[in-house]
């Protein structure tokens, strides 16, 4: 196994499509071959060597961008295996249509992080833009599997058209979280913008804080102790991270069912404080 480190050596003035730079794609290539890979940069095409210094370390693993840049788009697009780490920010479409492996971004990411991803794990230590785990305009299925962790806050429409998988936002989330959701689970620890669960069909929004407003098309189903939340909060993907404090006791929630303007089989679960 070898580790590849790509060090940005220039200031980006345009968006840079880094989707060809994936562990699978770089495996077995020497620095010269990697340097020759063509990348879309604005309306031009430039080789990797134009932007990055390339270092290959034997006995290592994965691909590292150091530093990152908010203009890196399509990081890990369609990735199937391996790991990518970004020491800094990344741009839009991080993990777009990802099928496996792990992506870890130390800084912030742009819009459509984890959009239409099917498997694998994306971990963002900073903030994320709109449409986390969503579907691109015109597409009808968003995230369909895997895990997406945002340690900071996320923009509007988290999990738009989401179909399966888990999104965890440790900070705040914007408006329309879980909009048009088909299924899956979104857990948000911070505050929430207006219209959560807008037009959701199925799926679960787990909120650690009561939302400022709920759409009129969600009905109160009362307070409950739901066993699956124990499983979720105790699962290895969540354990020791956000919501770990809820794993210590059977979680009590207030359940709101909706969106009755749509199929109405979704739910917003608001975690209740200890009695």
């Amino acid at each position: 196994m070898t580790a590849v480190t790509l060090s940005l050596k220039t200031t980006l003035r345009q968006r840079l499509d880094v989707s060809p730079l994936m562990p699978d794609n770089l495996a077995g290539r020497d620095p010269a071959e990697i340097a020759a890979i063509a990348l879309h940069y604005g309306n031009r095409t430039e080789p990797v060597g134009h932007f990055f210094d390339i270092r290959i370390t034997p006995d290592g693993d994965g691909l590292t961008f150091s530093p990152g840049d908010a203009r890196f788009d399509y990081l890990g697009r369609g990735m199937a295996a391996g790991s990518i780490r970004v020491a800094g920010d990344a741009g839009a479409y991080v993990g777009y249509q990802m099928r496996g492996g792990t992506i870890s971004v130390d800084g912030d990411v742009g819009i459509y992080c984890g959009a239409e991803m099917k498997s694998g794990e994306v971990h963002v230590r900073g903030n994320a833009g709109d449409f986390v785990g969503g579907a691109l305009p015109g597409n009808r299925k968003g995230m369909a599997g895997g895990c997406l962790f945002i340690e900071g806050s996320a923009g509007d429409r988290v999990g738009d058209h989401m179909r399966r998988g888990l999104i965890v936002i440790e900070g705040d989330a914007g408006a329309y979280a879980g909009s048009r959701m088909i299924a899956g689970t979104i857990a948000i620890k911070g505050r929430l913008g207006p219209y959560p669960g807008y037009a959701m069909k199925r799926g679960t929004l787990v909120l650690a804080q009561a939302p400022a407003m709920l759409p009129a098309t969600f009905n109160d189903c009362g307070t409950h102790t739901l066993g699956f939340l124990s499983l979720l909060f105790r699962s290895p993907v969540l354990h020791g991270r956000a919501f770990a404090d809820f794993a210590r006791r059977p979680p009590r929630v207030r359940r709101y069912a909706g969106d009755h303007a749509s199929l109405g089989k979704g739910e917003i679960l608001v975690l209740l404080p200890d009695p």
Binding site: G165, A183, T204, F228, S235, V237, K265, E267
Partner: peptide, 8 residues
């Protein structure tokens, strides 16, 4: 009214 959840 049954719901499915995929965890781990």
């Amino acid at each position: 009214f049954q719901l499915s959840k995929k965890i781990d």
